[in-house]
Nucleic acid binder design. Sequence first.
DNA 1: TATTGTTATACTCTATAACTATA
DNA 2: TATAGTTATAGAGTATAACAATA
Lengths: 141, 141
Amino acid sequence: MTIDPLKDFPGYALRRASVATMQRLAGGLQVLDLRASEASILLVIEANPGITQSEIGRLLDIAGANMAPLMRRLHDRDLVERNAVDGRSQALHLSPAGRALSAKARRIFRAHEDELLKKIPPADRAPFLKNLQALYSDPTD
Amino acid sequence: MTIDPLKDFPGYALRRASVATMQRLAGGLQVLDLRASEASILLVIEANPGITQSEIGRLLDIAGANMAPLMRRLHDRDLVERNAVDGRSQALHLSPAGRALSAKARRIFRAHEDELLKKIPPADRAPFLKNLQALYSDPTD
DNA sequence: TATTGTTATACTCTATAACTATA
DNA sequence: TATAGTTATAGAGTATAACAATA
């Protein structure tokens, strides 16, 4: 039998779980022609009308250089409207089409999270989430 | 204040935690000029002398097409020896240099996992690992 | 000086298709 | 027919450097 020397490493399990989970989410979002990052941005704009691109980047930990092509794609599809607030920042809002698509994306997110939670015993769910959050929000990570 | 509509999604927390953790591991392995995938392969070969490339791929969930360049790099650096067992499979073993590097990589893995575990309350650690494993080994994921 | 937004570029991981050779 | 290994290629996320315009 093959020995897996990584099996009991939580970091390894974390990565495997993340990849498997993201693949499932990407598959669900495919019918909307949205990537997970794009769908996330739509939800963030909907929850924060008038937010700027750089604020989204800080919230989702996406570098400015990588936000630009993502936002351009959403703008080119007329999902997001940009209104200049000063010479360099733009207030972002969802267009009607963006709101419709965001609602569909949110349903896919919800179904996806429900699927995921089915595999975690109810008593473990709250600490599981809290521990994951600690792993990425702790600055000493 | 900015609202984060994704904050309580475990799938989102899983991804953020995985990315943050992998970046830290990659930084640690940099001094060995190893990527996380390459270091993992070294540990697997060490634990399973004579294993084949396709068996490693199945264990780590790396597609054959992606194993080829990884193995070539390890072989080019004289870390891994390949001995034909039949016309298409090769038994893999670590070279002395490969064993030395693998030992160093394992110490970096260990230190990295210890850092990670520091952020998880001791009582949560076993279920945390088990739940992560369930997320990627469950075929219905 | 610092920030916003952009372009260009490169690396890594993942994925598919197509192929050779062997079992 | 199925498997092992390879090549080529493409999509996606992440990273740095450099830049223009603005605060």
